[in-house]
Nucleic acid binder design. Structure first.
Lengths: 192, 192
DNA sequence: CAAAAGCATTGATTTAAATCAACGTCCTTT
DNA sequence: AAAGGACGTTGATTTAAATCAATGCTTTTG
């Protein structure tokens, strides 16, 4: 339990045994069956989830009830509706499990207390959000400036493990495409 | 000088006089004439710039030499190629001034020293990057899930001051559209 | 001040992706 | 084992945006 979480944490800020133990008191574990929700749109997001095992997705649903995947969360990733978490506004995303999953949960109060009391946790948080920002920026840049072919290729090379584990129509959704279009893109690419 | 910068800083982490003075020793001012570069693609980004006055843009240029605006930076905003800044890799963006501008410059060494020595600066940095992440996420979400009309409306209501100050074709570029398309979108919207 | 450049608009045409529809395969799940 | 559902593919058609081209207006700049 918590092994991946602390591995991740220690790779960013080296912790002592005591610090690890202290942080552990703030954490809880949660198991989620495939298709279960971690968060539903409209609810307030009260935690940050670190994925120890399994796969989740965050997505929004538009007025035509089309789903748009905002983010995948596989092992080692953190997933949340950060806006809702930070502001207390109702969540605009749903988060659910694509596979049976195990999560390390940091509640809002735990997060705040750790930020106040443990400088290393703040550093960890800063590095995490910086990484998330850079990933998001890369994605946005490719969305507005590259062809759909390139974007798909980039996705595959950057996240091969996601491409292997997630149905293709979800990758289409993540890219803002219809499943049909992605299918045709793949055909075009393979015949070249 | 530095007034807006410290206003911004104090609104996030309340500083003492001494702390302000200490931080000041790490900062430099830079003026940029309209059209001047702050950063060119291929160079390593060695600073973070806070806009005291004026307006800048960060943009990439694709193989067809089309420009894609990644970010605007008006008064109170921070602009940089963060990936290049953090990794030391060559920048993939250009940053230049849309108007005569005044910037508060934080060099890489200044940034790192402040992070090490002043917890409040780390908090400030964390809050800044968090805000930038949320803004980026909002933009990405609207890009993949809303119609072009909605996206334009959202942009106008969210950033009315930008819409007033930058040419329309740059907003088109920011949205990943051609100037012609944005012009037609505006026409459609106004005739409703 | 005059020429040039930058900008927004409009029209005609092409191109890329969405939509609608059908089908086959593979899983679930009862 | 059978039925139903999810998934990916393919084809035909529609729709939205890009592209190409031209024009008038405004702002720079030599």
């Amino acid at each position: 339990m918590y092994t991946l979480f602390f591995q991740n944490l220690n790779s960013k800020v080296q912790l002592t045994e005591e610090e690890e133990e202290q942080i552990k008191t703030y954490l809880t574990l949660k198991k989620l069956r495939k298709k279960q929700y971690l968060l539903q749109e409209g609810d307030v997001c009260k935690m940050i989830a670190f994925v120890e095992k399994g796969a989740l997705r965050a997505y929004s649903v538009d007025e035509n009830s089309n789903e748009h995947i905002i983010q995948f969360g596989l092992e080692g990733w953190t997933i949340s509706d950060l806006y809702s978490f930070l502001t207390g506004e109702p969540a605009t995303y749903n988060i659910d499990a694509l596979e049976d999953s195990e999560l390390v949960i940091i509640s809002k109060s735990a997060h705040e207390e750790l930020l106040q009391t443990m400088p290393k946790y703040e550093t960890f948080t800063r590095l995490n959000i910086t990484g998330a920002y850079l990933a998001m920026q890369r994605r946005l840049t490719s969305t507005i400036s590259a062809s759909v072919e390139e974007r798909y290729q980039d996705f595959i090379t950057l996240y091969p493990h996601i491409a292997q584990r997630v149905p293709q129509h979800m990758i289409a959704s993540y890219m803002g495409l219809t499943p049909e279009t992605l299918s045709r893109i793949r055909k075009r690419i393979s015949s070249r």
